[in-house]
Design a protein around this nucleic acid. Structure first.
Lengths: 108, 108
DNA sequence: TGAACCATAGCACAAAGTACCATATTTTTC
DNA sequence: GAAAAATATGGTACTTTGTGCTATGGTTCA
């Protein structure tokens, strides 16, 4: 299940974004309050192809071993990701998305 | 496995930190180069008790549902974490550690 | 020659994470 | 006040991520 398919994870969040839109349009809301309702500020998480994962790592100029430590996973797993043997799951995809969009420093 | 027990994940990283120490002491190394060898700059990841996880979420002033979206996991799982029914794994612990040490904004 | 880093590869296995549901409590909204 | 929606718990069944271990070959450097 792609994080792309369902913008809201089939939960009690159907109107979260709509409410935030209204509040945001209405006036000034501090980011802390906003956060409680709005979800559009989240880093988009999409599925990553093996080459994309490798690209993220090579952009960071890291070996698989070091990269794995940064993500707190095993070297074995990073290798499997890059060869398409396994696909990163929810939390892993989030970390990879952060590294990809905000730079590797964001997760160090 | 506990990220605390083995500083280096039983990999070919036995001397990574030592080498970095030497190089760093030797003179000026840009952060990019440093990163390849040194691991001491990583956010420490320790196991979290259920209450600690809830504390992180409540500090962020988020519902379980929103918090789950931020971590790209299901609401069900966050609930289980906070009740001790399940324990966050490698990548999840990293995200929680980032949120705990650098603030929730670090993972949005 | 060998010590160390790098990446691939395979296997077995525990448990993390998912999906779905029902229920109860609180908060919001009209 | 009642209706509606958000919140959190609880449980069950299932998938497969992620771990751990070991072996291999290629590369670099002393």
């Amino acid at each position: 299940m792609g994080s792309v398919k369902t913008p809201y994870r089939s939960d009690a969040l159907r109107s979260a974004h709509r409410i935030a839109q209204d509040l945001h349009a209405a006036g000034a809301i501090d980011k802390a309050t906003m956060r409680r309702f709005d979800v559009s500020c989240l880093t988009p998480v999409e599925e990553l192809r093996p080459e994309a994962i490798r690209a993220i790592r090579e952009t960071a100029q890291m070996s698989q071993a070091i990269f794995a430590m940064a993500l707190n996973v095993t070297t074995s797993l990073v290798s499997k990701w890059e060869r398409g043997e396994k696909k990163p799951g929810g939390p892993s995809l989030k970390l990879l998305a952060l590294a990809s969009r905000k730079g590797i420093d964001a997760i160090l």
